[in-house]
């Protein structure tokens, strides 16, 4: 088992790096996009529900089908994977960002305004810090979901650990399947750890 891993270290290493690349790029774009979207949606409140409905509908499309649907539009490759995964993440991220921001007591926000904070200060000093745990929970979900679904992206030539898993399945190679799975889990753990570090840093900065 371990020998197999060492012998094929190159293959596993490349797949893991490819996988990490997809997840990292997807997350960066997803968080950016969802920030912009929620900024807009918090201002145009009546579109909030519609947007969540739309993204939950997209989220419910099986990933294999959505990857296949995107091939005629974007072709094969990891950029197609990034686009699909970003779409999926919008549901998880938007839902958490919006519910986090909306769950902050309106009286508290009014008190902050009444004390003499600008709208920007109310958001950055009161609303965001209080919504922070919910938002981080959303990002954590997005990381886990992206890392998992990204394996399916191997079927559109996006590379990553999915390649190892699929080839393991085709050739009935248990080693490949088990190691592919373990590496996926390790990636999630590492990302989670990184997220915790970022969280701690931001928390300290907020005060």
């Amino acid at each position: 088992m371990i020998n197999y891993f060492i012998k094929n270290f190159d293959m596993f290493g490349t797949a893991t790096l490819e996988h990490l690349w997809i997840v990292a790029v997807t997350l960066a774009i997803s968080v950016l996009l969802s920030t912009v979207l929620s900024y807009a949606l918090l201002r145009v409140k009546y579109l909030e529900d519609a947007a969540i409905q739309l993204f939950s509908a997209i989220y419910s499309i099986p990933s294999l089908a959505l990857f296949a649907l995107m091939i005629p539009v974007m072709g094969l490759g990891n950029m197609t994977a990034v686009v699909v995964l970003t779409l999926y993440n919008q549901f998880l991220l938007l839902r958490n960002i919006l519910s986090g921001m909306n769950s902050v007591d309106k009286n508290l926000l009014e008190a902050a305004t009444g004390m003499g904070m600008t709208n920007f200060q109310v958001v950055t000093r009161v609303q965001l810090p209080l919504a922070f745990p919910t938002i981080i929970a959303g990002i954590r979900l997005a990381i886990i979901s992206t890392t998992g679904i990204a394996t399916i992206a191997a079927c559109i030539n996006a590379g990553g650990l999915g390649t190892v898993l699929f080839s393991g399945m085709r050739t009935m190679n248990v080693y490949k399947i088990v190691w592919g799975t373990i590496l996926c889990a390790v990636i999630v753990l590492i990302e989670d750890l990184l997220l915790k570090m970022v969280e701690r840093k931001l928390r300290r900065g907020a005060c």
Binding site: D105, A111, G114, R125
Partner: peptide
């Protein structure tokens, strides 16, 4: 400006 109860920032 002082209001009832919730005025303080909990964080």
């Amino acid at each position: 400006y002082v209001i009832q109860q919730v005025g303080l920032f909990p964080h």
